[in-house]
């Protein structure tokens, strides 16, 4: 019995040691920026991913000028996601969920722009389908490959991260990081999901009286949430507390109230999202 417990304990120690040894690497790689590589889908420029530090400056104006193309380029991703699971992913839940969202989006966005909706929609759907079939599995595979590579090597990831401050820096760039990128850079589908769906829902549920914001405009809490494929928030923890008790509490409650979220795009499950809460926008 002692032997068994020793063995188990040793295994746990090893595991713990492993985690601890790896933890600093993770931390270092993502001090305040996205840890995820941005992926360019073939529909836009294929390999425009910048590695130099000058990249973000180019990127930001593009985001502001052309915010609309991004969603278009991004709507296809769910399509392959939906098709892919048959050969690859074993989870059927994600499939059905992805299916629901897929047909609606392209129709809506195209209708607005055309005079003969039926035909255009039909052809657009066809076009998207063919395009999706031909390109998407690649891009998704690419994305996953890249993610794997980035996980494997720390420093390059850091560079990639610092090249994309828009995704995570406290200034407003963070919000446009996912939406924008029409000019060649496209966030991952998870960036888009987090920056739009998660942000909107959590912000909608966040209650913070403006009187309390007065002296803590710069306070910042970082909460990390883990989202299951069903959209359920299965874990919440504070990476950094703000030092202001009410800001922390209100952030926690906002997340609690936002549960469950709409299911995240498949392929990354569970998905973890870091939420920086600051009251800087309270007074316009």
């Amino acid at each position: 019995m002692l032997a068994v417990s020793c063995a188990v304990h040793l295994a746990l120690i090893a595991l713990a040691a492993f985690m601890i040894a790896h933890k600093p690497a993770y931390r270092r790689s993502s001090p305040s920026v996205i840890n995820v590589t941005m992926v360019s889908f073939p529909s836009s420029t294929p390999e425009a991913k910048p590695s130099g530090p000058a990249a973000p400056k180019v990127e930001t104006p593009a985001e502001q000028k052309i915010p609309k193309p991004a969603p278009k380029a991004e709507t296809p991703p769910p399509v392959p996601v939906e098709q892919k699971p048959v050969p690859e992913t074993p989870k059927p839940e994600a499939v059905s969920v992805a299916k629901k969202t897929e047909p609606v989006k392209p129709k809506e966005s195209l209708k607005k722009k055309t005079f003969k909706p039926d035909k255009v929609v039909e052809s657009a759907v066809k076009r998207i389908e063919t395009r999706a079939e031909s390109t998407k599995p690649d891009s998704l595979a690419q994305a996953l490959d890249k993610l794997k590579k980035d996980v494997a090597k720390g420093p390059p990831n850091q560079a990639a991260g610092s090249a994309l401050p828009a995704g995570a820096g406290p200034p407003a760039g963070g919000q446009s990081g996912g939406e924008g990128g029409g000019g060649g850079e496209v966030g991952t589908i998870w960036d888009v999901y987090a920056n739009n769906i998660v942000m909107e829902q959590v912000q909608k549920n966040w209650a913070f009286p403006e009187q309390l914001a007065g002296n803590i405009q710069n306070a910042e809490a970082l909460l990390v949430i883990t989202i299951a494929s069903s959209g359920e928030i299965v874990d919440i923890w504070f990476e950094t507390r703000s030092g202001n008790a009410y800001l922390d509490e209100s952030a926690y409650r906002a997340v609690k109230k936002s549960n469950p979220l709409p299911p995240p795009p498949a392929g990354k499950s569970p998905l973890s999202v870091g939420l920086y809460f600051t009251p800087s926008g309270v007074q316009k």
């Binding site: 991952t188 942000m199 912000q203 009286p209 403006e210 209100s250 998905l271 999202v273 600051t278």
Partner: peptide, 26 residues
Amino acid sequence: LALACPVSGKSPDVYININNPFLKKI
């Protein structure tokens, strides 16, 4: 630690900013 680490040790996939509470009252 071993149980806690797999959760808190992994850094998030995506970071977002939330700076404008929709509700201005509790």
